[in-house]
């Protein structure tokens, strides 16, 4: 059963990208179709990162365990980030390497976006059972904590790209902040418990 649910997650998860790209090709994405596609893909990457980060708090707080679907959700976040980046490189900048390189060096929001993507790459590559076995559970788990950096950087990237801070980027950033703060709180509480037990 979970295998079919996982397949369904990939299938449904790819639908926003397929649909938006189709609308773009038939010229139904409005006046600035490239920007609309670029933004939509980036926003979905952030949404899937957020969903991935809610799996643990959901299990802790409500007992609902969706852990077996987290890999699919995380990989979807990576695929969307990859499509978002490709749209920027190919459709937005037309593979003008000089302009792209200048952007990466000079523009904090591009630098931070690239950082977020670069962080996701090793996580995506190791998102399979063979790599978990090879790395060992503990090392694998430690590596995958880098997703916190990727999500934080993605939120800051979004905040910096808009002309003025409107409701949407601020809300997304707040959600990411709460999800990251939850990890910190959990860590601190766990440590206190250990200290008490050893006292």
């Amino acid at each position: 059963m979970p295998r079919y649910i996982n397949r369904a997650i990939y299938l449904v998860g790819m639908m926003p990208a397929t649909w938006t790209f189709y609308l773009g090709v038939i010229d139904q994405l409005g006046a600035d179709p490239m920007k609309t596609l670029e933004r939509s893909l980036g926003l979905w990457a952030l949404r899937f990162l957020i969903i991935t980060l809610t799996i643990t708090p959901l299990r802790d707080l409500s007992g609902v365990n969706l852990l077996r679907y987290r890999r699919a959700l995380g990989l979807l976040a990576f695929f969307y980030a990859l499509m978002h980046l490709s749209t920027y490189l190919v459709l937005d900048q037309g593979l003008d390497l000089d302009a792209i390189w200048a952007d990466i060096l000079k523009r904090p929001y591009i630098t931070i976006g690239m950082l977020s993507f670069a962080t996701l790459v090793p996580l995506a590559i190791t998102s399979n059972n063979a790599m978990i076995r090879r790395l060992g559970g503990a090392a694998w788990a430690r590596l995958h904590r880098w997703v916190y950096l990727a999500a934080g950087a993605a939120a800051v990237h979004y905040l910096l790209v808009v002309k003025s801070w409107t409701m949407e980027p601020v809300i997304y950033t707040m959600i990411v902040a709460v999800l990251l703060a939850y990890r910190v709180a959990r860590r601190l509480r766990g440590r206190r418990r250990v200290t008490l037990a050893s006292a």
């Binding site: 773009g24 006046a31 910096l160």
Partner: peptide, 16 residues
């Protein structure tokens, strides 16, 4: 935060 060297003409060539 961004370059002003180039611009995207709206309504020309769609997605591409």
């Amino acid at each position: 935060r961004w370059s002003q060297a180039t611009e995207r003409p709206i309504g020309e060539g769609g997605l591409f």
